[in-house]
Simulated assay, not measured.
Amino acid sequence: MTKYRTLYLLIILLFVAGGLFFWSALVPTGKLPEAGMAGSNGNEAMTALDRPDICEETVFEGARASLCIIDPAANATRLVYRDRTGVPHGSVKRAVTALATFGQTPVLAMNAGMYHSDMTPVGLYVEDGKEISPLNTDDDFGNFFLKPNGVFFIRPDGTAGVMETMAYAGAEIAPAFATQSGPMLVINGEIHPRFLPDGTTRYIRNGVGVRTDGKLVLAITRDPVSLGSFARLFKDVAMCPNALFFDGGVSSMAWGAHMEIDAGEPAGPVVVVMLRD
């Protein structure tokens, strides 16, 4: 019986050792992935091997974010919405893929405005000087209608601006590109008056601002943040006196052909940044 007990004990020990090995393989180490391994939702590593020179990483109020500073003299910024057959791209990834087909892979691309269920823009949308959707001054529910909302526009000379909707309506601007969204994040140096300092609703968010030196800033967070915190990022870090919210929860960004942050959700208008010739 002794040899059987020994055999049984050996089998039990082998079973326990195997279980411990299997369990250790399942338990996470708590470490972030190495650089270059940033994943689809923005919550992994803060850097990637193909990060554009115009983009930098920061941590603000405990949340990671990417800030991309675009000089109109070095980069051309435009908006795209539909392919050459008139069908909406429907995502940042498809927009980038379509541009690459014609040898126009952007340096950077991200979603740039809200859309209806049929993918049409909720507010103003202008592409190549043609108005596809008119300015929307209606009152309704949702972030777009959290007044004041605003317009991001690019002039024919490549310079850009962000302006509150009613101010834009009275400015008689004839943009080459424009997209309306809401709410404004920063208005003439002040945080949107209806924002709580740090509300409980948090998403990965993206938006655009323009600095006093004429450079525009495209920002996206890698961790969920409140609108108040996101607005302070533009005001206090990006130094933008005017900034506009693009969206939250669907926010996505491509670096070249690489989807650095991909929410896996549809996108209407897309802003792309190209190198100037």
Rank of each mutant, 00 (worst) to 15 (best):
D140C: 01
P88R: 08
H192F: 04
A174L: 10
V210L: 03
E164T: 09
A109F: 09
I204G: 07
M163C: 10
K235L: 15
V107H: 00
L227E: 06
P148I: 04
R64E: 04
K31A: 05
V96G: 00
A48P: 02
M166I: 06
R276N: 14
A38D: 14
W255M: 05
V186I: 12
M184F: 05
I54P: 01
E190C: 05
V87K: 11
G86T: 10
A243T: 11
V208S: 05
Y4K: 15
F15S: 06
G228S: 11
A263E: 02
L13N: 09
V217F: 03
A45Q: 09
A160I: 05
V107D: 06
L20H: 13
A267C: 10
D140G: 13
V92R: 09
A98W: 09
T120E: 12
A63D: 08
A171V: 11
T221E: 04
F60Q: 02
T2D: 15
H192V: 06
S252I: 04
M239A: 13
G170T: 10
G103N: 13
Q180H: 07
L26G: 06
T2F: 13
A171L: 04
P241V: 09
G30C: 12
V122P: 01
L7G: 03
T159F: 13
D83C: 01
R84Y: 11
A63G: 12
G113W: 00
S226K: 11
T101W: 15
T105L: 02
L32G: 03
D247K: 09
T47V: 15
V87Y: 08
G39C: 13
E57M: 15
E44A: 14
F15N: 03
R78Q: 07
N111D: 07
D247H: 13
P33D: 02
A17T: 14
M239F: 02
D198Y: 12
Q180W: 11
E190H: 14
S181G: 12
T200S: 15
W23I: 13
T85C: 07
M166N: 14
I204P: 05
L227V: 05
L124S: 02
A100L: 07
A98F: 13
V273Q: 03
H258R: 15
R84G: 12
I187V: 12
T58A: 13
G264M: 07
L108M: 08
G42N: 01
D138R: 12
V126G: 02
G199T: 08
K235P: 05
R51G: 14
V210K: 10
M1I: 03
A100E: 15
T101A: 15
V250I: 13
L218A: 08
T105C: 04
M110L: 13
I220V: 04
S24N: 00
R64P: 00
M114F: 04
I261D: 09
I154L: 05
N41R: 13
A176F: 04
V107C: 10
I191N: 00
I11E: 05
V271R: 07
G129W: 07
A176K: 15
S117R: 08
L7K: 07
I154C: 06
T137S: 00
M119T: 09
L244K: 01
A169Q: 09
L216T: 00
P134Q: 04
G170W: 00
H89P: 05
V250W: 02
E260I: 14
G214K: 12
D83R: 00
M253F: 03
V87L: 11
